[in-house]
Amino acid sequence: MYTQALNQKDSGPQGTQGLVEDPERLARFEARVAAEDKIEPNDWMPEAYRRTLTRQISQHAHSEIVGMLPEGNWITRAPSLRRKAALLAKVQDEGGHGLYLYAAAETLGTSREQLVEQLLSGKAKYSSIFNYPTLTWADIGAIGWLVDGAAIMNQIPLCRTSFGPYARAMIRICKEESFHQRQGYEIMLTLCRGTEQQKAMAQDALNRWWWPSLMMFGPPDAESSHTDQSMRWKIKRFTNDALRQQFVDATVPQGHYLGLTFPDPALRFNEETKHWEFGEIDWEEFRQVLAGNGPCNRERMEARRRAHDEGAWVREAALAHAAKRKARRAATPKLAAE
């Protein structure tokens, strides 16, 4: 999910902001990228490219990890064994996606430990969407359908991103992710075919998740000054607004099929452009959520920190176990010597 990190200002480590790259190497790099050649970890790359990608990939990883929380909230209360198994598998996938992405980010020279530290200290961000609460079971349907749907829109172009390890991780993630969206839509469909109350629950979830899902694509192009370089370096392939429109066009008919209405009185189909036009997004809400003032920011960070602290003994035990096993093996006389 989630290219929101590409909208952040690049604030390199002290002293590197003004770094002037060797123009010859830079030109060669830019030519390679322009020719659709992939950049691999050992290749020369401009510092700003390395920083932008480290930030983007690690925050994408953080989003996957924090994204486990709102859905994990419903695993024990899933309405059937089928739903529970699917949700468990989905949340496990998010954990796996986080790991692929940390591994891709590490190839740029920052350790996973440092990246996780940046999340826990609040220095690194994660997608704004996970700061909203999951109040009812219908929210699990809405997240799969809308949030994973938006994530897929964002992630499919990332499969062709210029940095090899990121592109390869994204291919694997996209393959796994389509089940996420389908299971979400199926939950919505089941609710919409159920009782009046169940349908109302689905409608309520759509009402609450629609606008935050549109915000996932980031600020409008006019305000996103960092898009240009990311596009030139082929980190990003489409602008925020283009992807958002693609998402709206794909999703609105799916919602109408469910018999639901979208919480946007301005939503209408333009016969000429063949696009769904939508109303003004509340960017102040988006800024507030990014600034840490969303409904669940504090709770999410607390849960992550607690999980990290309470898991410390597992990491220590694993290391102790490995050391013990190694010592025992060293003490055992070799078979050949007997």
Binding site: D93, G96, L99, A103, R112, E176, A318, H321, R325
Partner: peptide, 23 residues
């Protein structure tokens, strides 16, 4: 397929199994 962090080879195999062969 990718990489994992683990304290030793046996645990690396398990982590690789969980991370890269869920399907």
């Amino acid at each position: 397929a990718g990489s994992v962090h683990a304290p030793d080879a046996e645990m690396a195999l398990q982590a690789a199994r969980d991370t890269y062969t869920r399907r």
